[in-house]
Nucleic acid binder design. Sequence first.
DNA 1: CGTAAGATTTACT
DNA 2: GTAAATCTTACGA
Length: 200
Amino acid sequence: MSDVDRELGLTGRALQVAPRLLGALLTSTVDGESVTVRITEVEAYEGVDDPASHAYRGPTARNEVMFGPAGFLYVYRHLGLHHCANVVVGPPGVASAVLLRAGEVVQGQEVALGRRQARGVCRTSRDIARGPARLAVALALTREHNGLSLTVGEVLRLRAGRPGEVCRGPRVGIAGSGPEAASWPWRFWHAGSEFVSVTG
DNA sequence: CGTAAGATTTACT
DNA sequence: GTAAATCTTACGA
């Protein structure tokens, strides 16, 4: 286990780890360009007990990384258009992950903005990584990065940052998983941050 | 093998 | 506010 694993307590379950990831810094280096975001909004996804989780029905080719050890990246494609990135947490064999929903770009802003504008319109710096698929674009994360380590290696680097005041509420976009799971307050964000995808 | 639905974003009315 | 874009995954036949 690395120092970062210990510092952030990544081997805990998603519900415990999610709020601890707020304020953490994630750097990606893709195509020789480095971008760092400070994480401002996350959601916890558990496994067999969580109807909204990709791991709810057991391991598949897509979600196998979620069942592995903590400290790795899980990236999935959504609606054929977008990618979303998760931090795999929890002990090996237990599916548990934290979806990165939004962040503030603190390094490599020009690169990140360029990547966003190459895929559409991005008017303000506030919107560069505000939203899970936007954050993935800013960091240039795709399915190719699925399963990469967040603590070892050249591409990804996660490190602890200064924590802030935490708010929590229901997760976004999972109404199809049933009213119960959609009501659980498993979404966490930094109080007062403008770099949050949905306020409330 | 066919098909339905999806942890979203963007543009347009 | 509403709709379209776009394709993979997962499940049923």
